[in-house]
Design a protein around this nucleic acid. Structure first.
Lengths: 206, 206
DNA sequence: GCAATAACCATACTCGGTTCAATAACGAAC
DNA sequence: GTTCGTTATTGAACCGAGTATGGTTATTGC
């Protein structure tokens, strides 16, 4: 009995997609996002430009594929009953911060972060990604809290997590040791959620 | 005694700038942002494309000039002593919500909102504007609260105000009466700042 | 084998934005 | 009111991202 493997067509498609993505990331890493044209990427990946854009809708998506971040709306929607949505998110990010990423992944992440930081256009694109998550989260929360409060809460949460991510990236780029970065991240996660939960007066009152 | 009027050169520049801006806004209003090319705008304003881009750095800026929003960092920096930064912001937005804009301005605002809503690219650009304010605010707050907490707080505040603005725009577009929109805005402002001040548990606990 | 389908390619195009050399308009000084 | 340096403006060529198209090749299901 032969395991039904994906058709040759599908496998080739996947190959092409990966080849494009890898070549793009390599070039971006070597020279920065803005200094690489999509024509170059297409040429180096040995595909036509039209093919490249059949796989990735924009140049930005070439650098950001797989960097979507965690699906906030899902985490909230799937939380166990009795848990507030904020508790669910805190638990998720606490777990993320507790998990020490292996060296190799960290190098790759660092390269990715450097690429993203290399172009304002890319940073905007990354923000736009979170913007969509914000809306999805607002929709999930709307049933419980009404549309206006839900929109406000989702905005606060999404913005906090974006700020958290930026701080994390900066710490990574600053050259601090992996342990220090991880420790700071754990603290920052707690601070971010404390602020969200108890409001800005939480810090104001020291 | 003659009032020292601006030189002819300066006046012409101002004229050109205004002509470009007005033509652009008119075309955007008529056909939507994406359906108008900068070539058309330049032609209709009777300037060369290069001249247009000498006045406005991007196509988006043609639709967003003057829509910067309130300078959060300044409001906070100039607050009277003894007032928390959040109180200062709340007072500012409360005053804004209390002021009934005159009919004519409201029509112009509505047109502007419709244009902005007509293109995702424009909405992203508008977001990016607030993003800069966020960073300026974070810098002002950093002295008092440290960089990490400041970044988180600024992010929450900026995101809340963006959400507030979006809700306001939606209410305007929904065709509700000006009084209803104004009343809802006053409520929303209080809700937004209550959430910021006391945290999400403020609503969670009802 | 043999069509139907889907990936792929080359090419030309649109549009936003930049560059640059040439020119026109202004301001100030004589 | 002529001259001269400055500055706004122009036109036209150029770049890069993204789209449209019509044709070619390879896989698939029969």
């Amino acid at each position: 009995m032969v395991i039904a493997v994906a058709g040759l067509r599908e496998r080739k498609k996947e190959q092409t997609r990966r080849r494009i993505a890898e070549v793009a990331l390599r070039l971006f890493t070597e020279r920065g996002f803005d200094a690489v044209t999509v024509n170059e990427i297409a040429e180096a990946a040995e595909v036509a430009k039209a093919t490249l854009f059949a796989y990735f809708p924009t140049k930005e998506s070439l650098a950001l594929h797989g960097v979507g971040g965690d699906p906030l709306a899902e985490i909230v929607a799937r939380r166990p009953p009795g848990q507030t949505f904020l508790e669910a998110l805190r638990a998720h990010y606490r777990a993320f911060a507790a998990a020490q990423p292996p060296e190799a992944d960290l190098d790759a992440l660092l390269a990715r972060v450097r690429v993203i930081q290399s172009s304002p256009a890319l940073q905007n694109a990354a923000n736009a990604l979170l913007y969509q998550q914000r809306q999805a989260l607002a929709q999930v929360l709307a049933d419980e809290y009404g549309p206006t409060a839900a929109a406000l809460m989702a905005a606060q949460v999404a913005a906090s997590l974006l700020a958290l991510q930026e701080t994390y990236f900066q710490r990574l780029l600053s050259g601090a040791s992996a342990e220090d970065v991880a420790r700071a991240l754990r603290q920052d996660v707690e601070l971010a959620f404390d602020l969200l939960q108890h409001g800005l007066e939480y810090v104001e009152g020291r």
